[in-house]
Design a binder for these strands. Structure first.
Length: 483
DNA sequence: TGAAATGTTGGGGCG
DNA sequence: ACGCCCCAACATTTC
């Protein structure tokens, strides 16, 4: 049946291809109204951060363009989502609303309430999976128990088989009534007031076309050496698809399908390795769905008792600015500030320094990443920080503490990454680059550096802080008997 | 997806 | 030739 009007409520599915809500609307209604609603306040405490809003602005601009190219128009509104949808239903006479699901606890609660409310007024509402290979509730242990360890989750996922068939984008769309009011994108004020995003444009192309360009480049050039090169922050070995995935400009179904077309993802190939990373994203969604408190509290409750150092405001500031005195960590934190992104290997090092060597609560680090990452994603961010802090699912054991000197020497041996983001160390030779304080004042002076003036002294003694962390973590009560 | 401490082995220098 | 020591290289254990 194709009569009447349907609303497609876009959220973080900012694409036209493989978009089940859009396709369903096109199949079931004559008129289709694409809508985005910006909620001014988010009561969950996890309102979108500044870097993500920058991305959202440009992704929405791209969506506006591609809708316009196909004869449609994006209707932008501002306000509480349920109220705005009801207003739009009244204005358009639509009787159907379709959207693709979000999985954050607050979004689930909001969407469920909206769905109930709309259905009570006789509106036809349906939601779809556009963001995941499998719904978080589709993979589970025998009795439906959620997984807490990645490997069995990954095996269960593979046992289900991965045969996605993404849908192509519609080539044309029905027009939107010209009198239907849309708020100009600029009025959402998504871009930052202070232009700290100046360097972002050189690194990113938000939107569906940008996502595909990135995927093509990754599959053409980078995926073959992915297994080895993904750990080297100085080289372009990673996919850099995370922000595109977060905003749904491309779906994991599409990625897996595109990989299938080019290379068989054997377990030891680059594609197999990358598929595993996609599965980590699924695992993060699975965990947050089943343990919704883990955005703010440790999954393993014992870790709340740890003697976290809440008073380290000065140290947090130095960490945020990339002035810890550990070159690889500082490089990462500055890359984050300048580009809205940080290489994953360096995220682990930076997180380990903050949570283990400095004993700053992982939630503080998670907040900073949340505000500064263009790919800030609540499931991934929560899992990542709890993994590093040792309090989450499949977490790193408490004694796994990264040494930023050794990690730097192993993964940035030629110092390309450090010299790119910490230019004041550019003249320090490889031998001393990751441990400049050991070179001695005389040598440092020869490279134009006085420690504490041109580059900071180490924020904390690695050996002592490691021992302090081992003592603190080791003093926690033994874990509860395993299931 | 760790690092440090401790243990083992084997070759070379030397008396 | 032999035992002894040293120590690098690697393996194992511990945190």
């Amino acid at each position: 049946m194709t009569a009447g009007t349907a609303i497609v409520w876009f959220r973080r599915d900012l694409r036209l291809a493989d978009n089940p809500a859009l396709l369903t609307a096109l199949a079931s209604a004559e008129r289709v109204i694409p809508v985005f609603v910006d909620a001014p306040e988010d009561a969950s405490g996890w309102a979108m951060g500044s870097a993500s809003r920058w991305w959202l602005h440009h992704s929405l601009a791209a969506l506006e363009r591609s809708l316009a190219e196909r004869g449609s128009r994006l209707i932008i509104r501002r306000g509480e989502a349920g109220a705005e949808l009801r207003r739009l239903l009244a204005e358009t006479g639509a009787r159907q609303v379709f959207w693709n699901r979000l999985y954050e606890p607050a979004a689930i609660a909001r969407d469920a309430a909206i769905k109930r409310l709309l259905r009570e007024t006789g509106i036809d509402v349906a939601s779809f999976n556009a963001a995941l290979l499998y719904e978080p509730w589709e993979i589970g242990r025998g009795g439906g128990e959620p997984y807490r360890v990645f490997t069995p989750f990954w095996k269960a996922m593979q046992a289900r088989g991965l045969e996605p068939v993404p849908e192509p984008a519609p080539s044309s769309l029905p027009p939107v009534p010209p009198d239907l009011v849309s708020q100009p994108l600029a009025e959402l004020r998504l871009l930052p007031g202070i232009p700290w995003d100046a360097g972002f444009h050189a690194h990113w192309q938000a939107g569906e076309a940008g996502a595909w360009a990135r995927l093509e480049e990754f599959l053409e050039a980078d995926i073959r050496g992915y297994r080895q090169r993904r750990d080297l922050p100085g080289e372009p070995g990673t996919s850099r698809l995370s922000p595109h995935l977060h905003f749904g400009e491309i779906s994991p179904r599409q990625i897996v399908s595109a990989m299938r077309d080019r290379e068989v993802p054997a377990a030891d190939s680059g594609a197999g390795c990358y598929l595993r990373e996609i599965a980590w994203r699924e695992f993060a969604h699975h965990l947050l769905f089943h343990f919704p408190h883990t955005t703010d509290a440790p999954l393993d409750a014992r870790f709340a008792q740890l003697p976290w150092r809440e008073d380290g405001a000065d140290e947090i500031g130095r960490w945020q600015r990339g002035e810890t005195g550990y070159p690889i960590v500082d490089a990462g934190m500055r890359e984050l500030w300048r580009t809205g992104w940080m290489h994953n290997r360096v995220r682990m090092m930076a997180a380990s320094l903050l949570t283990k060597n400095l004993l700053v609560p992982w939630q503080r680090g998670a907040r900073w990443f949340w505000d500064t990452l263009v790919d800030a994603d609540l499931p991934n961010n929560s899992l990542g920080w709890q993994w590093t802090a040792g309090c989450g699912a499949d977490a790193a054991p408490y004694f796994r503490i990264f040494n930023p000197v050794l990690q730097g020497e192993r993964f940035d041996p030629k110092g390309e990454y450090v010299r790119r983001w910490v230019p004041e160390l550019a003249r320090v030779p490889d031998e001393w680059l990751h441990r400049p304080w050991e070179a001695g004042a005389e040598r440092l002076a020869g490279w134009g550096i006085r420690l504490g003036e041109h580059y900071p002294r180490p924020i904390v003694d690695l050996k002592l802080s490691r021992e302090r962390a081992l003592a603190a973590f080791g003093a926690l009560k033994a874990p509860p008997a395993s299931v």
